[in-house]
Design a protein around this nucleic acid. Structure first.
Length: 418
RNA sequence: CGGGGCGUGGUGUAACGGCUAACAUGCUUGACUUGGGAUCAAGUGACUCCGGGUUCGAAUCCCGGCGCCCCGACCA
């Protein structure tokens, strides 16, 4: 993509009303735009990152048998009255509005109810189980206090998967698979080293739920990590009994602040009972479906990556989610035509080789372009200037390590194609 | 929802109750320049968040509203 075609621009200063690093950098670099407190639009660069995060999650959900859908954001009051979760006294974060005829509808804050209700039309027999249904969908939550940039918003995207199993044994088996899939997701997103499976409160159907907590000072949670065992316990449930139960020793635990990037929990028959979602087994017995819920917030993931992986000059995206793989920068001297021609040709070559490239073809000084490139944070930078043209080499710099190398064209392409 | 802070050109800041609201940046034009946000020149851009009040006079003081940020509580 030609940078001159990008309508967003970088800015030197962050807006006064943003304190969180994620929002400051993402706004300065032109990834997002703030509409109001806790509500952000995603701009071309931001959308590219978001789509990559989504795709990684999608691939891992598909790999464990997920079937993707998109449910509606407008929600039927009746469905929520089934589980007694319509009232504002029970769920305070509802956004509600009215149809022209006066009847109330809600804006989805989660989807257990509508999906359970929907699945009643499709699950009747043990032959219809198990099912793993997921979506990427906007959630609306009337947070009393939005904060930390894109980390806690009033409108945000969420991947939520719901499992429908015939019994606890099947459910547990999938639950473990989902846990592993989640760990793969963090690894692919560049958060593998700092994200821990964390034991948290479980509710009425299991002793624990599991949160996926990424170390970060902006986090709202306090977790206690056993680094050897790579597991953690949320402070909320930390007691001697729990430690004993999990086989952990208080002495080995390190306190850390962390961001909850995902969570999974056993819903048991809470929703299937309420909606009478049942199936008939081989012997003709009617049984309730066992459900589970598995969430990840892609926007929060994006914010967490920026919080975790950035330096004083800007963002440092992992290759897997970077908006582009390569930032090609033209530095044109007195007679810019030669360098420009060379850069144009290299850009075409990179495009042909399907290496995602942002080409800074603008007429601007080198320093400004470098500063922009650091801020935007694309992993690889190629500089084409009079110097590189006259030497007949390609200069490749790594955003993360700062290492620069000089390569012939073939080597360059080979390296970037990996 | 309790407590605190703050609303001034697009952005970041300044201005004792008193001159035409200043500076930087951005943007436009030109010159010079092209390996780390250069330099110079000329322009552009604000009903000082909204509404009321006090005063000869309000960006500044008072009241109300709206918005934003932070701490805490809450977080299906």
């Amino acid at each position: 993509m030609l940078q001159s075609r990008l309508f967003t621009k970088t800015r030197k200063e962050a807006p006064r009303d943003e304190v969180a690093k994620n929002a400051q950098l993402l706004i300065r670099a032109g990834y997002i735009h703030k509409e109001m407190a806790g509500v952000y639009s995603y701009l071309p660069l931001g959308l590219r990152v978001m789509n990559k995060i989504i795709q990684i999650i999608r691939e891992e959900m598909d790999a464990i048998g997920g079937e993707e859908v998109v449910l509606t954001a407008l929600q039927d009051r009746k469905v929520w009255e089934t589980t007694n979760r319509w009232s504002d006294d029970v769920v305070s974060s509802w956004f509600k509005t009215k149809l022209k005829n006066g009847s109330e509808v809600g804006l989805s804050f989660t989807h257990e109810e509508p999906l359970t209700s929907l699945m009643r039309d499709y699950i009747h027999s043990y032959r219809d189980l198990p099912r793993y249904v997921y979506q990427f969908q906007t959630k609306f939550r009337n947070e009393e206090r939005a904060k930390s940039g894109i980390m806690r918003g009033r409108e945000f995207l969420m991947k939520d998967l719901y499992s429908f199993s015939r019994d606890e044994r099947d459910h547990d088996r999938f639950y473990e698979k989902a846990k592993e899939a989640y760990m793969k997701v963090w690894k692919r997103l560049g958060l593998g080293e700092t994200t821990y499976v964390t034991f948290a409160s479980g509710g009425s159907f299991s002793k624990y739920s599991h949160e996926f907590q990424t170390e970060s000072d902006t986090g709202e949670d306090i977790i206690y990590v056993d680094e050897k065992k790579k597991i953690a316990v949320n402070k909320e449930v930390l007691t001697d009994d729990v430690l004993k139960d999990l086989g952990l020793n208080r002495k080995n635990l390190i306190e850390k602040k962390a961001v909850e990037v995902g969570n999974i929990f056993n819903l048991g028959t809470r929703f299937s009972d309420a909606f009478e979602l049942t199936y008939v087994d081989e012997s003709g017995n009617k049984k309730p479906v066992i459900m589970g819920s598995y969430g990840i917030g892609p926007g929060r993931v994006m914010g967490t990556i920026v919080e975790t992986l950035s330096d004083e000059n800007g963002i440092i995206w992992p290759e897997s989610v970077a908006p582009f793989k390569v930032h090609l920068i033209l530095v044109s001297g007195k007679d810019g035509a030669v360098a420009r021609k060379e850069a144009d040709e290299l850009y075409e070559l990179l495009e042909r080789e399907e290496i995602e490239t942002l080409y800074d073809d603008r007429e601007a000084r080198a320093g400004e372009k470098f500063a922009d490139a650091d801020l935007i944070g694309i992993p690889w930078r190629i500089v084409v200037s009079e110097k590189t043209v006259s030497l007949g080499i390609h200069e490749l710099k790594n955003r993360k390590t700062g290492k620069t190398e000089h390569l012939a064209e073939k080597e360059l392409i080979a390296k970037l194609k990996r």
